[in-house]
Design a protein around this nucleic acid. Sequence first.
DNA 1: GCCAACGTTGGC
DNA 2: GCCAACGTTGGC
Length: 138
Amino acid sequence: MASNWFLAKTDPGTYSAAQLAADKRTTWDGVTNPQAVSVIRTMRAGDKVWIYHSGGEPAVVAIAKVVSEAKPDPSNAKSAVVDLEYLRAVDPPVTLREIRDSGLFAHWALIRQGRLSTMAAPARFQEWMKAQRPKLKL
DNA sequence: GCCAACGTTGGC
DNA sequence: GCCAACGTTGGC
């Protein structure tokens, strides 16, 4: 089965895509919202994740790959984590404004539910991103 | 820095 | 179990 795509937000002041690039791999923790945690639990090794910076200029800035199964967060029984490996930058980033202005994603949680930090990405989003950044390998 | 949205906490 | 108060997130 083809890999699934997700989107995960991070505040670059706390943990940026550049840091993930330097680390190569990290455990994606700190997700506590129950809805977001349930999304984490659906992630499987091989799935891909759009890394999104909130705060500053909100934008999709990179792609990462899920490299572990979802597992309990050892430091928080209500949470769950996965390991992510950095793949590549989205350069230049695709901003929230561009995504909204496309008019294609009005029903997506990224637009509709601003505070949700982790969500599935609709198939149409991958297609649209490829159209925005033709050289970007998905 | 402000504010809207909304999740969480705690008193009852 | 309800709901008011409070805290947090994230866009602007």
